[in-house]
Design a protein around this nucleic acid. Structure first.
Lengths: 190, 190
DNA sequence: CCGCGTTAAGAACACGGTGTTGATTATTCA
DNA sequence: TGAATAATCAACACCGTGTTCTTAACGCGG
């Protein structure tokens, strides 16, 4: 208790891991709102009461999984954020997703969490808007925010498609594709 | 029974209208998955058993509301679909949304139905891809589909933002904005 | 305006998931 | 090994579900 602050107990680790895996398995079949604590625990072979010792509900469990992934992504884009290169930043994000393939193939699938993917893409928001402001000095801030929303949601769709089709393209290819669309539009594909 | 085919009974009309209104009111507070038949009926002051005489669950009720709106939208874009003008088609869709302001301000809001808005935007899919194919003969079909996905999701975000901020811009303005982004990209805003 | 047919209301039911409790067993860490 | 901690187990009241049956109200057509 004094040394480990009740965190490193193997029993706790096992329980949490089993519950997480069970949740992710079930999310392949239905959205988080339709999952029951009962089902998650049965598949994990964990007592239902134990679930409530760690999480308040399935959504809480999912949130903790997401926060773990988010901090990992944030760590791996740290450098690009400081450098201030958007294409580097985008590529970093794609690589993080690729590294967490198993997890992301659930989180960004049919019954995944669109709001979370949105948060991930919005990591690049301030920087993108700032860079655009330099390129297009005439544009108003509000207009640039609208543009970011447009492109961000396009990106999200591309990522969802990418993940669901087995991530065949490389992060580099995706970055190039998205940069082409955003800077030059359809005409870039002539 | 013979004449009206059990459809025009005022009691039925009232019940359905009350349930629909109640559902839409509740959808301002939480997503469809969190709504209960009990709550919907209590707010509508309709017996819970009566609900099941018309709908199987809240999702079914929502679907019927959506189908009504969809067929209205389809009717009003009919002409543009035949003419084959994408900007006309887009403007028509925006006008339909504007006409159904009250309904759409719920359906396309925080707890709305993203899948439905996607269906609405995808009305323009085949036509857009066909037109792009003329403009950009070199592009592959798969690439154009990817492009449509990208732009469609951008559009969806624009619409959500538009509806949630009180629909201040006109359908024409929106159409122009989207056309600018899609054909020329960021550079169009210099 | 009446009466037949339809619809809504109301009460009751079993069912299943929830969230919590207290007692017991098992495991871990030092 | 022994004290601390975690997991199990059984039980609980609670709540929403979906269905059934009876009764009351309503509306439509004649």
């Amino acid at each position: 208790m004094e040394t480990n602050e009740r965190k490193n107990d193997r029993r706790v680790k096992y329980t949490k891991a089993a519950l997480k895996q069970s949740l992710l398995e079930q999310m392949r079949d239905r959205p988080i709102e339709k999952l029951t604590v009962k089902d998650i625990c049965e598949r994990a072979d964990i007592n239902r009461g134990t679930f409530y010792a760690h999480y308040s509900d399935p959504r809480d469990l999912l949130s903790q999984i997401e926060e773990e992934l988010m901090s990992e992504i944030l760590k791996s884009v740290e450098r690009s954020l400081q450098i201030g290169d958007i294409s580097l930043l985008l590529a970093d994000i794609f690589e993080s997703i690729e590294k967490n393939r198993d997890l992301c193939s659930v989180l960004f699938s049919e019954y995944g969490d669109k709001a979370f993917l949105k948060r991930v893409i919005f990591i690049a928001r301030d920087q993108s808007i700032a860079e655009w402001k330099r390129i297009i000095p005439g544009a108003k801030r509000e207009q640039l925010e609208m543009l970011y929303m447009f492109y961000a949601n396009g990106c999200i769709a591309i990522i969802e498609n990418w993940v669901q089709n087995g991530m065949k393209e490389s992060p580099k290819e995706l970055t190039t594709f998205i940069e082409k669309i955003s800077t030059n539009g359809l005409l870039a594909f002539q």
